[in-house]
Measured scan of single mutants.
Amino acid sequence: MFYPNSPQTSPQLTQIPYGQQYAMMQRQIQQPYHPFATTEPQARLYPYHYQGPIQQEQGGFITQQSTAASPQYVQMRVTPVDQSIMSGYPNQTANGSSSSSFNYNIHPQQQQQQQQQQQQLRHHAMPVGSVPLQDDRYRKQLIVNYLAPDVTSTDLHELFSRFGELDGARIIYDKQTNMSKGYGFVYFCHAEDAKEAVERMSGYEFHGKWLKVGYSTNPLNIVPSNSSPYVHAGSRGAAG
């Protein structure tokens, strides 16, 4: 039997160049792979992502010199942007860049009308829970959420009447099932009393439920100042 490094198959040491006398086997001759043993700084910083320098080929596509990437890492192929796409944008300079302001050559009167329309939209648009300043009635009506099913309009009136005089209180019921929808409205005579009720009743436990109280901004629920107070009856038909 002959071994790869046996004296019968191995040459004389004098015939082997210096430095390879003890590297006779194939696994010894093959050098191990060192990912950080390279002179390129990109490979030292990113050993798993770097795959060699990027070269520009004919046709405008950018390719990489090395083989496919590892399945664990996804390499994105980048193509140059066609400058003709950006030619339609206004205020574009000769080098292809555009300024931040756009001039669509709008007539001054049209621009003024658009600004007025935007101001009107901001004036009428009102986020949930906010209180408008032009109508004091919005500051007097509250919406009470997360009410228990057994709470009546009379219970709601008695709960909030300790903060001040009320114009009314009612629970909203479903017309088909005649069941409470879980929320109601309270109408105060003074805005200061309503503000105190919002601050003190939010998070209050009532009939096993934690109440959420806020201003009601729905104009359909506003009680006119010259109208008669609501009837605080315990029956659902009268309260709904």
Rank of each mutant, 00 (worst) to 15 (best):
T217G: 01
Q92T: 08
Y183N: 00
Q42E: 05
I222C: 03
F36E: 15
Y3R: 14
Y215V: 02
Q141V: 00
A197W: 00
T79N: 12
A94Q: 09
Q118A: 07
M25I: 10
Q55G: 09
G59W: 02
G240A: 07
S66I: 04
Q111P: 06
Q15D: 07
F36M: 07
V231R: 08
Q72F: 12
S130L: 03
Y3K: 15
S216I: 01
Y46F: 08
T14I: 02
L147V: 07
Y46W: 11
S235G: 11
L220Y: 02
L45N: 15
G182Q: 02
D155N: 09
W210D: 01
Y204C: 13
Q120Y: 10
A43P: 08
N226M: 08
A125G: 07
H157L: 15
G52N: 14
V213Q: 00
S130R: 14
M25A: 14
T63S: 11
V78L: 08
Y73Q: 13
Y183I: 00
T9F: 05
Q83T: 08
V128F: 13
E205R: 13
L45H: 15
Y204H: 10
S97P: 12
N145E: 01
P132E: 03
F188W: 00
G237Y: 10
I106A: 09
Y183C: 01
N5A: 07
P71S: 11
D150S: 13
P7D: 05
A233R: 06
Y48N: 15
S130K: 14
Q110W: 10
L159E: 03
P32W: 04
I54R: 15
S216W: 00
G129R: 11
N221A: 07
E40K: 15
Y50F: 09
V74M: 10
Q134N: 08
K175V: 05
M126K: 10
Q114H: 11
S84E: 09
G88A: 08
K175T: 06
S130V: 08
Q109G: 09
G129H: 08
V231A: 10
D167V: 02
P71T: 11
V74N: 15
Q134Y: 06
Q72V: 02
F102I: 13
S161F: 15
Y73F: 12
G96H: 08
I143L: 02
P7Y: 07
P11H: 07
Q15M: 03
P224M: 05
S6A: 09
E205M: 15
D135V: 03
H157T: 14
A238V: 05
K140L: 02
L156P: 01
Q134A: 08
S228H: 13
Y73C: 13
H207P: 00
V131F: 09
Q31C: 03
S227G: 05
S101Q: 07
V78M: 14
S70W: 03
H207I: 01
Q75S: 10
P53Y: 09
Q92K: 13
Q21E: 03
V231E: 09
V128Q: 06
A169F: 02
E196Y: 15
Y215K: 01
S6I: 06
Q26E: 10
S225A: 12
A197N: 01
A191R: 12
E205F: 15
S100N: 13
S161Y: 14
Y204S: 11
Y146G: 01
H49G: 11
N178W: 10
I16K: 15
T63Q: 06
G184R: 01
I172F: 00
S66V: 05
T14M: 09
A194T: 08
P224A: 04
H190W: 05
R44K: 15
E192S: 08
F206H: 06
C189A: 03
G214E: 03
S153L: 04
Q118I: 10
G214C: 05
Q117F: 10
R236K: 04
L166V: 02
I143D: 00
T79E: 06
Q176P: 08
I85F: 10
K140W: 01
I106E: 04
Q113Y: 11
Y138I: 02
Y22H: 13
M24K: 15
L156I: 12
L211H: 01
Q56P: 11
Y18M: 06
T152V: 09
K212A: 06
M179C: 05
Y18R: 15
A43M: 05
S10M: 06
L147T: 11
V144C: 09
F102W: 14
P224S: 09
V81Q: 09
Y230K: 05
P71R: 14
G19T: 09
T79C: 06
H123T: 05
M201C: 09
S216F: 01
Y104V: 06
S100M: 03
M126E: 07
G234Y: 14
H232W: 15
C189H: 14
P35R: 14
P108T: 09
I62R: 15
Q113G: 07
T9D: 04
M126Y: 10
L133T: 08
A68H: 11
P108Q: 13
K140N: 02
Q111I: 11
I85Y: 09
S101R: 12
P47H: 08
G60K: 14
A37G: 06
Y173L: 05
A194G: 02
H190N: 12
A43Y: 05
S99G: 09
S216Y: 08
G88N: 08
S153Y: 15
Q119M: 12
T14Q: 14
F163W: 03
P4C: 02
H49M: 03
V223W: 02
R139L: 11
S97A: 06
G88C: 08
Q110G: 08
P90Y: 10
M24I: 11
Y22P: 14
V74A: 15
Y48H: 15
H124P: 11
N218V: 00
E192N: 04
E196P: 14
Q113E: 07
K209G: 01
V213G: 00
V144N: 01
R77Y: 01
S227P: 07
P53E: 11
Y73N: 15
Q113K: 13
Q83H: 09
F206Q: 01
P35S: 06
F36R: 15
S180R: 02
N95Q: 11
F102Q: 08
D174W: 09
D193C: 13
Q141S: 00
V213F: 01
G203F: 04
E196W: 15
G164M: 01
A43V: 04
S227A: 08
S180G: 03
R44G: 05
K195G: 14
S10D: 04
K212C: 05
M126W: 14
I171L: 07
Q31W: 08
A194K: 00
D174M: 03
P32R: 08
V78P: 11
P132M: 14
F185L: 01
L45G: 13
P219S: 01
S99C: 07
K195L: 14
H107D: 04
Q20H: 14
P108Y: 11
Q64E: 06
G52I: 04
L220F: 02
A148H: 12
M179K: 05
G52E: 08
Y204W: 15
P132R: 12
H124S: 07
E165L: 14
H107G: 09
Q58H: 13
